[in-house]
């Protein structure tokens, strides 16, 4: 799993840090490192940017996996630097931001926007593979997820917008339903596409979503 993130603009980060003059910066050694949004280099660059904005940086670190509960240890280790800061700027996905907030009372500011959960295709290129819909249909769609790969999340076949196998919203993107059709044809399982798919259940786990392994 990779949590795909994008750095907020410095302008927005500046606004979020308004009135917070000293900052501790924490990146993440896992997903945000792979997406080049919160690894060692990005944390170092952020330190310089914040200093240019006139902020005092009390310390920096890259947490091994910010979403993991081991994050508590890192927070403890840097207690002095964190304690003397007005806020922590977190350069991980929102799951890391949540973790950090659990372990410290200080204001926690996200430096990244969390976009989706995806896979890396080529170096630095990612695509969403699962929206965690709670009702996986991959078994009937040739392993291609229509909820995420189709712009409209259609489950009964293509819309009228598909053109030359591409999607109406972007000529450079494949139409999921052309891919699904071809994959099922290749697998000689095209009958699956003729099957009526009922409306999806959007309340499999009603928000706020929680589950308990029993």
């Amino acid at each position: 799993m990779k949590s795909i993130t994008k750095q907020k603009t410095l302008e927005e980060i500046g606004q979020l840090l308004d009135g917070l003059n000293s900052v501790f910066i924490a990146g993440c050694g896992t997903c945000a490192t792979m997406t080049h949004t919160g690894g060692i280099e990005e944390v170092a660059a952020m330190k310089l940017s914040l200093q240019e904005l006139g902020k005092t940086v009390t310390g920096t670190t890259v947490i091994p996996a910010a979403c993991d509960d081991m994050t508590q240890e890192t927070i403890k280790k840097y207690e002095d630097a964190i304690g003397s800061a007005d806020a922590m700027l977190i350069m991980s996905c929102a799951m890391g931001v949540h973790r950090v907030s659990l372990y410290h009372k200080k204001a926690v500011i996200p430096a990244l926007d969390t976009l989706f959960i995806g896979l890396e295709d080529n170096y630095g290129e990612f695509h969403e593979v699962c929206a965690q819909c709670g009702q996986c249909v991959l078994g009937e769609t040739g392993g291609i997820c229509p909820v995420t790969a189709c712009h409209k999340g259609l489950v009964n076949g293509p819309c009228g917008g598909t053109n030359d196998g591409k999607c109406e919203v972007d000529k450079n993107r494949d139409c999921a339903w052309t891919l699904i059709h071809n994959k099922l044809a290749e697998q000689k399982r095209l009958d699956l596409m003729y099957k009526y798919q009922p409306p999806k259940n959007y309340q499999v786990t009603p928000k706020p979503k929680v589950t308990k392994i029993t």
Partner: peptide, 14 residues
Amino acid sequence: EANPIEPQLVKFEK
């Protein structure tokens, strides 16, 4: 006139 037509015809039948 959809290209490809096959997925469109599946949906038509549905």
